[in-house]
C-alpha cells in the first residue's frame, strides 16, 4: 500500500498530485497489478482533503486503464507503467550511484549535479527528436 502526500505550494492541483504519485509508484514497481490503492476515506482523513478530490483522481486512473474500482471493496491496480523494464532498474541505479560519487569527487554540489543531469537529459531528448 502506498501513502500519498501533498505539496501545497507546488501549484499542481491536488488530484493531479495523487495521479502523479500512483503513476510514479507504478513506474518504480512499488505498486503491482492487483494491489489495492488507499481507501478514499483514509486518504481524505490522512491528508485532510475533500473525498471528491480522491475520487476524481481514481476515476482518472480508471479512465487511463491503470486502476479499477470494485464496489464496496476499494480501487485496485489493473495496469503497469514499467514496460517490463523493472529488471533493468537495479543495474542502472548502481551505474547512476557510481556516476554520482564521481561527480561529488569532482567537486560538484547537489544543485550542480541536478542542473547537469537535467540539461543533459533535455539535450539528449532533443537529439532523439531531431
Amino acid at each position: 500500500m502506498i501513502e500519498f502526500h501533498l505539496d501545497g505550494r507546488s501549484g499542481v492541483a491536488p488530484y493531479m498530485q495523487l495521479i502523479h504519485q500512483v503513476r510514479q509508484a507504478l513506474r518504480l514497481g512499488l505498486l503491482r497489478v492487483g494491489d489495492q490503492l488507499p481507501k478514499v476515506k483514509d486518504v481524505a482523513a490522512g491528508l485532510a482533503i475533500n473525498p471528491n478530490t480522491v475520487l476524481k483522481a481514481y476515476r482518472e486512473l480508471e479512465y487511463e486503464g491503470l486502476a479499477a474500482a470494485r464496489p464496496g471493496i476499494g480501487t485496485f491496480v489493473t495496469g503497469t507503467l514499467d514496460g517490463g523494464s523493472l529488471a533493468a532498474h537495479g543495474p542502472l541505479r548502481r551505474d547512476l550511484q557510481r556516476w554520482l560519487a564521481k561527480a561529488r569527487r569532482a567537486g560538484l554540489d547537489e544543485e550542480s549535479i541536478e542542473a547537469l543531469f537535467v540539461s543533459t537529459f533535455r539535450s539528449a531528448g532533443e537529439e532523439e527528436i531531431a
Binding site: 478514499v40 476515506k41 481524505a44 482523513a45 490522512g46 491528508l47 485532510a48 482533503i49 473525498p51 480522491v54
Partner: peptide, 14 residues
C-alpha cells in the same frame, strides 16, 4: 486545525 479538518473530511467520506 489539521486534525479537525481530517476528521471532517473522514466524515464526509463515510
Amino acid at each position: 486545525r489539521r486534525e479537525f479538518l481530517q476528521y471532517l473530511m473522514e466524515s464526509v467520506g463515510e
